[in-house]
């Protein structure tokens, strides 16, 4: 079953001199439970594609369906709500809320969703344990290493049980050891929680871990490779 389905997706930016087709005729299906890497050189359109899929940006042409929802039918308010309920985000620069503790950062989305306090608390502890940070519940982001912060970010994205998680270059700021550690955790959670992961990268070590690799060049999909299990 497809979680994400795009048809002839296009995004054109009005550059100063010329138009830039950041995403060009992309037809992409992502199935439930995938662990997929979008790879390609800098400027190939990875971020733009992920922004379109997650409803942050609107396409110039083409369509996006998440499950049965056509994103173009949602207004801005509905889109925010849709993201809150269905999509988890991990950003390159962690983007935790600096005034909140690790635990509060993880609870944050569940609280926005209006979930029960006890459920939120329990889920936060569980997921922090899963990312190996049970003992850092009360630490502020600035008391954590980059790798630890990104693990909190993954926990935050996952805690609310979204349909899929979008991670735009999640390891770009991490050293080798933290990168491996983070990917192991992502992979484990992907199996355990059955949550679809789509992440972009241009790091070969990361690419190796993916089960499906989509290669972008100048906004086009030039290769779509499924690894055998």
């Amino acid at each position: 079953m497809n979680v994400i389905e795009t048809k002839n997706l296009e995004k054109v930016y009005d550059g100063k001199a010329v138009e830039v087709k950041a995403v060009n005729k992309v037809n992409l299906n992502i199935e439930e439970g995938e662990f997929t890497a979008i790879v390609g050189p800098s400027g190939s359109g990875k971020t733009t594609l992920l922004n379109l899929i997650s409803g942050l940006d609107s396409p110039t042409a083409g369509s996006i369906h998440i499950d049965d929802t056509d994103l173009s039918t949602l207004n801005r308010k509905q889109l925010v709500d849709f993201r809150l309920k269905n999509i988890g985000f991990v950003f390159q620069s962690y983007n935790l809320i600096p005034v909140l503790t690790a635990g509060e950062n993880v609870s944050f989305i569940m609280e926005l969703q209006g979930r029960d306090k006890h459920e939120t608390e329990a889920r936060t502890r569980e997921i922090l344990e899963n990312v190996g940070l049970a003992d850092r519940y009360h630490s502020r982001p600035n008391q954590l290493s980059g790798g630890q912060q990104q693990r909190v970010a993954v926990a935050r994205a996952l805690a609310s049980k979204p349909r899929f998680i979008i991670a735009d270059e999640p390891t770009a700021n991490l050293d080798t050891k933290s990168t491996e550690n983070l990917l192991d955790i992502m992979e484990e959670l992907n199996q355990k929680e059955k949550i679809t992961f789509i992440f972009s990268t241009h790091d070969q070590r990361v690419v190796k871990k993916a089960r499906r690799i989509i290669l972008l060049e100048d906004g086009r999909i030039v290769k779509d490779e499924q690894k055998k299990q």
Binding site: S54, K77, V80, R83, L84, K85, F91, N95
Partner: peptide
Amino acid sequence: TKELGMLMAIGMNRKR
């Protein structure tokens, strides 16, 4: 700016 953008991205609506 960046933090507020992130909050809006992950699902904090305008009212909040």
